[in-house]
Design a protein around this nucleic acid. Sequence first.
DNA 1: GTCTATAGAAGGATAGAC
DNA 2: GTCTATCCTTCTATAGAC
Lengths: 192, 192
Amino acid sequence: MAADTKHRILESTSELFRRHGYAGTGLKQIVAAADAPFGSIYHHFPGGKQQLCEEVILSAGRMYFDLVHAIFAAAPDPVSGTRNAFLGAAAVLEATDYVDACPIETVALEVASSDDLLRRACAEVFEEWIVGAGAIFREAGVPEAEARVLAISLINALEGAFVLARTLRSPEPLEAAAATMTNAVTAALPGA
Amino acid sequence: MAADTKHRILESTSELFRRHGYAGTGLKQIVAAADAPFGSIYHHFPGGKQQLCEEVILSAGRMYFDLVHAIFAAAPDPVSGTRNAFLGAAAVLEATDYVDACPIETVALEVASSDDLLRRACAEVFEEWIVGAGAIFREAGVPEAEARVLAISLINALEGAFVLARTLRSPEPLEAAAATMTNAVTAALPGA
DNA sequence: GTCTATAGAAGGATAGAC
DNA sequence: GTCTATCCTTCTATAGAC
């Protein structure tokens, strides 16, 4: 099944990029992990490693967007949603030996100053997240401009906490982010 | 001058790691940029790329610590210091075409799950920053536990904003972090 | 003791066998 | 059209010339 092979390659690549980054992951490792022949990469991704990476960024970015969106949708209010998002991320990180954090963060930093096509793909993903999170806060009554600042700060805190948590191998940064950001969201809501 | 050559190698490596990361930077690029013969690397760093990277992480980490410490020392109060740190970082980032952000962030993510020696070096640096920032807040009257949470959140925000700012090529994430974190610091100070 | 030349492995990419 | 075998470059690391 060609479509199945392509899917397995995307999955393996996403997984390997999380652990070793873009430059640190070889195409040979990817096909080995996906249990696919080497030629499959260039059959499904004629643009080579760059195209494969672009598709991984966009699909992983959307999956993560849906995940966070579901957490906020399941929560009774944005303050609870914020807390659940950070504490849920802390639990996943601990359970996966500090591997399973943001799927595109390492790649985003690697390509920011060296590959403009991939940088733009990451930018598209982050902008989608900002707009999505901003909409949640706006619907809760936060004014437009403030909602965007809050949304960006939420993602700032999440991405930054991932760097510290993975490096320190501790949930403490995500817990600190949960505390600080629930305060910020609380202060921004109309009732405050 | 052997000592001079070692210094040039450390400088070039730090610069190249910022742009291309650990895996994306070759030792040949490093000696070319440092205008040094290839053998110099293994003369000054018998442990090879890993040892070179470790020294870069520790020295760059301490330089960045001193920089941020100086910004807070020059500010009249921690709230101004927080604002100056984020807006100053935004200015530097714009002036350097979005290259000159945190010197160890990309490497920290690359090695977090693949090289425990280097992960520990990054962890040592981050922990120093947390303790240093915590001391500033504690001296301003914030209780011990809250000061540490605030310090971690400050670094969370800075690191996260660097990821978004470099990817989006915009100072907006650092400006949003400045707004949110000055609020958080203000709320934590005794006068609030 | 400084540096060059090269080894040996792994990288991305491709040509062509089947 | 699927996959294997190979190409050429680049990587880290080392051996040995001077």
